[in-house]
Amino acid sequence: MTFSICVHETYTDEDGEERDRFGVAVTTRLPGVGTLCPFASESGAVATQSLVNVELGRKGIEYVDGGLAVEDALQSLLNADEGAENRQLHGVDADGTFVFSGEECKDWYGHVEGEHYTVAGNLLTGEAVIDAVADEYESSREADRPLAERLVDALAAGHEQGGDKREELHVQSAALLVESTEERVVDPYYEDLRVDATETPIADLRETYEYAVEGYEMAMELYEDGLDSVDGDED
Protein backbone atom coordinates (compact mmCIF):
# COMPACT_ATOMS: atom_id res chain seq x y z
CA MET A 1 0.00 0.00 0.00
CA THR A 2 2.94 2.32 0.21
CA PHE A 3 6.61 3.12 0.00
CA SER A 4 8.79 4.62 2.71
CA ILE A 5 12.33 5.44 3.74
CA CYS A 6 14.06 5.38 7.16
CA VAL A 7 17.43 7.08 7.68
CA HIS A 8 20.08 7.77 10.31
CA GLU A 9 22.58 10.61 10.00
CA THR A 10 25.21 12.17 12.21
CA TYR A 11 25.97 15.89 12.15
CA THR A 12 27.68 18.63 14.14
CA ASP A 13 25.44 21.18 15.84
CA GLU A 14 26.15 24.91 16.27
CA ASP A 15 28.09 24.24 19.48
CA GLY A 16 30.41 21.75 17.75
CA GLU A 17 28.77 18.71 19.37
CA GLU A 18 28.22 15.56 17.29
CA ARG A 19 24.55 14.61 17.13
CA ASP A 20 22.35 11.89 15.66
CA ARG A 21 19.16 12.43 13.71
CA PHE A 22 16.62 9.90 12.50
CA GLY A 23 14.02 10.40 9.81
CA VAL A 24 11.16 8.50 8.21
CA ALA A 25 8.91 9.49 5.29
CA VAL A 26 6.05 7.62 3.65
CA THR A 27 3.32 7.97 1.04
CA THR A 28 0.41 5.81 -0.10
CA ARG A 29 -2.83 5.76 -2.10
CA LEU A 30 -4.96 5.78 1.04
CA PRO A 31 -5.73 8.55 3.54
CA GLY A 32 -4.04 9.04 6.90
CA VAL A 33 -0.75 7.21 6.39
CA GLY A 34 0.92 9.46 8.95
CA THR A 35 -1.26 7.97 11.71
CA LEU A 36 -0.27 4.39 10.90
CA CYS A 37 3.17 3.88 9.43
CA PRO A 38 5.99 6.27 10.49
CA PHE A 39 7.63 6.21 13.93
CA ALA A 40 10.79 7.93 15.16
CA SER A 41 12.56 8.97 18.34
CA GLU A 42 16.00 10.15 19.42
CA SER A 43 17.09 6.50 19.16
CA GLY A 44 15.80 5.37 15.77
CA ALA A 45 13.18 5.35 13.02
CA VAL A 46 10.74 2.60 11.99
CA ALA A 47 8.14 2.16 9.23
CA THR A 48 5.41 -0.51 9.34
CA GLN A 49 3.37 -1.16 6.19
CA SER A 50 1.73 -3.61 3.75
CA LEU A 51 -1.00 -5.22 5.92
CA VAL A 52 -0.26 -2.65 8.62
CA ASN A 53 0.27 -3.68 12.22
CA VAL A 54 0.70 -0.36 14.00
CA GLU A 55 2.01 -2.08 17.14
CA LEU A 56 5.11 -3.16 15.22
CA GLY A 57 6.03 0.50 14.83
CA ARG A 58 5.04 1.60 18.32
CA LYS A 59 6.70 -1.26 20.12
CA GLY A 60 9.67 -1.24 17.75
CA ILE A 61 10.52 2.32 18.75
CA GLU A 62 9.85 1.50 22.41
CA TYR A 63 12.28 -1.40 22.28
CA VAL A 64 14.96 0.66 20.52
CA ASP A 65 14.50 3.43 23.08
CA GLY A 66 14.95 0.77 25.75
CA GLY A 67 18.36 -0.20 24.39
CA LEU A 68 17.64 -3.07 21.99
CA ALA A 69 19.39 -3.00 18.62
CA VAL A 70 16.92 -2.25 15.84
CA GLU A 71 17.44 -5.66 14.21
CA ASP A 72 16.76 -7.46 17.48
CA ALA A 73 13.79 -5.26 18.33
CA LEU A 74 12.01 -5.65 15.00
CA GLN A 75 12.84 -9.31 14.48
CA SER A 76 11.50 -10.19 17.92
CA LEU A 77 8.22 -8.46 17.09
CA LEU A 78 7.92 -10.29 13.78
CA ASN A 79 8.66 -13.61 15.50
CA ALA A 80 5.60 -13.05 17.68
CA ASP A 81 3.35 -11.83 14.84
CA GLU A 82 1.17 -14.51 13.22
CA GLY A 83 0.65 -12.23 10.22
CA ALA A 84 4.35 -11.53 9.65
CA GLU A 85 4.36 -12.78 6.06
CA ASN A 86 1.86 -10.03 5.17
CA ARG A 87 4.03 -7.28 6.68
CA GLN A 88 6.78 -4.97 5.63
CA LEU A 89 8.83 -3.63 8.51
CA HIS A 90 12.06 -1.68 8.39
CA GLY A 91 14.09 0.77 10.38
CA VAL A 92 17.40 2.18 11.58
CA ASP A 93 19.15 3.02 14.81
CA ALA A 94 22.54 4.62 15.48
CA ASP A 95 24.38 1.36 14.82
CA GLY A 96 22.49 -0.62 12.22
CA THR A 97 19.53 -1.28 9.93
CA PHE A 98 16.77 -3.87 9.54
CA VAL A 99 14.37 -4.54 6.70
CA PHE A 100 11.80 -7.30 6.15
CA SER A 101 9.29 -7.98 3.38
CA GLY A 102 6.96 -10.92 3.98
CA GLU A 103 6.38 -13.38 1.17
CA GLU A 104 2.64 -12.65 1.12
CA CYS A 105 3.03 -8.92 0.41
CA LYS A 106 1.38 -7.76 -2.81
CA ASP A 107 3.41 -7.26 -6.01
CA TRP A 108 5.41 -5.36 -6.77
CA TYR A 109 7.05 -5.43 -3.38
CA GLY A 110 10.63 -5.31 -2.18
CA HIS A 111 13.22 -3.33 -0.30
CA VAL A 112 16.69 -1.77 -0.36
CA GLU A 113 19.10 -1.73 2.57
CA GLY A 114 21.83 0.89 2.28
CA GLU A 115 24.42 2.43 4.55
CA HIS A 116 22.40 3.92 7.43
CA TYR A 117 19.10 3.83 5.53
CA THR A 118 16.33 1.47 4.39
CA VAL A 119 13.61 1.75 1.73
CA ALA A 120 10.63 -0.56 1.25
CA GLY A 121 7.44 -0.64 -0.78
CA ASN A 122 4.56 -2.82 -1.90
CA LEU A 123 1.80 -2.61 -4.50
CA LEU A 124 4.18 -0.53 -6.57
CA THR A 125 4.50 -0.11 -10.31
CA GLY A 126 7.94 -1.75 -10.10
CA GLU A 127 11.38 -1.95 -8.53
CA ALA A 128 12.34 1.38 -10.08
CA VAL A 129 10.26 3.14 -7.42
CA ILE A 130 12.35 2.13 -4.42
CA ASP A 131 15.57 2.39 -6.42
CA ALA A 132 14.70 6.01 -7.23
CA VAL A 133 13.96 6.76 -3.57
CA ALA A 134 17.30 5.28 -2.52
CA ASP A 135 19.25 7.00 -5.30
CA GLU A 136 17.75 10.41 -4.53
CA TYR A 137 18.47 10.07 -0.83
CA GLU A 138 22.05 8.92 -1.41
CA SER A 139 22.72 11.80 -3.80
CA SER A 140 21.51 14.29 -1.19
CA ARG A 141 23.38 13.01 1.85
CA GLU A 142 26.24 15.48 1.62
CA ALA A 143 23.96 18.41 0.77
CA ASP A 144 23.68 21.25 3.26
CA ARG A 145 19.89 21.05 3.41
CA PRO A 146 17.49 19.94 6.17
CA LEU A 147 16.77 16.22 6.32
CA ALA A 148 13.02 16.83 6.15
CA GLU A 149 13.41 18.60 2.80
CA ARG A 150 15.57 15.79 1.44
CA LEU A 151 13.06 13.17 2.56
CA VAL A 152 10.35 14.94 0.55
CA ASP A 153 12.69 14.85 -2.45
CA ALA A 154 13.21 11.10 -1.97
CA LEU A 155 9.45 10.47 -1.93
CA ALA A 156 9.06 12.65 -5.02
CA ALA A 157 11.64 10.57 -6.89
CA GLY A 158 9.71 7.38 -6.17
CA HIS A 159 6.41 9.00 -7.07
CA GLU A 160 7.82 10.09 -10.42
CA GLN A 161 8.70 6.46 -11.19
CA GLY A 162 5.07 5.41 -10.74
CA GLY A 163 4.75 4.93 -6.99
CA ASP A 164 1.69 3.04 -5.76
CA LYS A 165 0.12 1.30 -8.76
CA ARG A 166 -3.53 1.55 -7.64
CA GLU A 167 -4.55 4.46 -9.85
CA GLU A 168 -8.23 3.84 -9.11
CA LEU A 169 -7.61 5.15 -5.57
CA HIS A 170 -7.36 8.93 -5.91
CA VAL A 171 -7.36 9.86 -2.19
CA GLN A 172 -3.74 9.74 -1.07
CA SER A 173 -1.53 10.82 1.84
CA ALA A 174 2.08 11.41 2.85
CA ALA A 175 4.02 12.14 6.03
CA LEU A 176 7.48 12.79 7.39
CA LEU A 177 9.00 12.71 10.86
CA VAL A 178 12.51 13.72 11.99
CA GLU A 179 13.92 13.40 15.53
CA SER A 180 17.32 14.52 16.79
CA THR A 181 19.49 14.16 19.89
CA GLU A 182 20.14 17.90 19.75
CA GLU A 183 18.58 19.89 22.60
CA ARG A 184 16.61 22.82 21.21
CA VAL A 185 14.36 25.35 22.92
CA VAL A 186 11.78 24.95 20.15
CA ASP A 187 11.76 21.93 17.86
CA PRO A 188 11.41 22.90 14.19
CA TYR A 189 7.77 22.82 13.10
CA TYR A 190 8.80 21.39 9.76
CA GLU A 191 10.11 18.08 11.15
CA ASP A 192 6.72 16.47 11.91
CA LEU A 193 4.30 16.91 9.02
CA ARG A 194 1.33 15.07 7.53
CA VAL A 195 -0.95 15.45 4.55
CA ASP A 196 -3.85 13.15 5.37
CA ALA A 197 -6.18 13.27 2.33
CA THR A 198 -5.33 14.72 -1.08
CA GLU A 199 -4.92 13.82 -4.73
CA THR A 200 -1.40 15.33 -4.81
CA PRO A 201 0.39 14.05 -1.68
CA ILE A 202 4.00 14.89 -2.54
CA ALA A 203 3.28 18.37 -3.88
CA ASP A 204 1.11 19.09 -0.84
CA LEU A 205 3.70 17.73 1.58
CA ARG A 206 6.36 19.92 -0.04
CA GLU A 207 4.11 22.99 0.17
CA THR A 208 3.30 22.19 3.81
CA TYR A 209 7.01 21.84 4.51
CA GLU A 210 7.81 25.19 2.88
CA TYR A 211 5.07 26.96 4.86
CA ALA A 212 6.20 25.27 8.07
CA VAL A 213 9.78 26.46 7.52
CA GLU A 214 8.54 29.99 6.85
CA GLY A 215 6.34 29.93 9.95
CA TYR A 216 9.12 28.59 12.14
CA GLU A 217 11.60 31.22 10.98
CA MET A 218 9.06 34.01 11.49
CA ALA A 219 8.17 32.80 14.97
CA MET A 220 11.80 32.43 15.99
CA GLU A 221 12.56 35.95 14.84
CA LEU A 222 9.46 37.44 16.43
CA TYR A 223 9.84 35.71 19.78
CA GLU A 224 13.64 35.51 19.94
CA ASP A 225 13.89 37.66 23.08
CA GLY A 226 11.37 35.54 24.92
CA LEU A 227 13.12 32.34 23.91
CA ASP A 228 16.44 33.72 25.11
CA SER A 229 14.80 34.40 28.45
CA VAL A 230 13.44 30.86 28.67
CA ASP A 231 16.90 29.56 27.86
CA GLY A 232 18.41 31.63 30.68
CA ASP A 233 20.46 33.89 28.41
CA GLU A 234 18.67 37.21 28.95
CA ASP A 235 21.05 40.05 29.89
Rank of each mutant, 00 (worst) to 15 (best):
T2K: 07
T2F: 06
F3R: 03
S4M: 08
V7I: 14
V7S: 06
H8W: 10
T10I: 15
T10M: 14
Y11S: 02
Y11C: 02
Y11M: 01
D13Y: 12
D13P: 13
D13G: 14
E14R: 15
G16D: 13
E17V: 14
E17A: 15
E17C: 12
E18F: 10
E18A: 14
R19Y: 04
R21E: 05
A25R: 01
T27I: 03
T28A: 04
R29V: 02
V33L: 03
V33E: 09
L36D: 09
L36Q: 14
P38V: 02
A47V: 03
A47Y: 05
T48F: 01
T48K: 00
Q49F: 03
S50H: 05
V54R: 14
E55G: 10
E55N: 13
G57R: 00
G57Q: 00
R58W: 09
I61A: 01
D65F: 04
G66M: 06
L68Y: 10
D72H: 07
D72S: 06
Q75Y: 05
E82S: 10
G83I: 06
N86W: 15
L89W: 02
G91L: 00
D93N: 03
D95H: 11
F98G: 03
F100V: 01
E103H: 07
C105L: 04
Y109M: 08
G110Y: 06
G110D: 04
V112R: 00
E113D: 06
G114I: 00
E115I: 07
H116Y: 11
Y117Q: 08
A120T: 04
N122G: 02
T125F: 02
E127H: 09
E127A: 14
V129L: 11
V133H: 01
E142N: 15
E142Q: 12
E142I: 09
P146N: 13
A148Q: 05
R150W: 01
R150Q: 07
R150P: 01
L151H: 03
V152G: 09
L155V: 07
G158C: 00
E160V: 11
E160L: 06
G163N: 12
G163S: 05
R166P: 04
L169R: 14
H170S: 13
S173G: 09
A175V: 05
L177V: 12
V178C: 07
S180E: 00
T181R: 03
E182H: 08
E183C: 03
R184C: 05
V186A: 13
V186E: 15
Y190G: 10
R194C: 11
V195F: 08
E199A: 11
D204N: 10
D204H: 10
D204V: 11
R206K: 15
R206P: 05
E210N: 15
E210Y: 10
V213L: 10
A219Y: 15
A219D: 15
Y223E: 14
D225C: 03
D228V: 01
D228I: 06
D231W: 09
D231P: 05
G232E: 07
G232V: 04
D233K: 13
E234G: 12
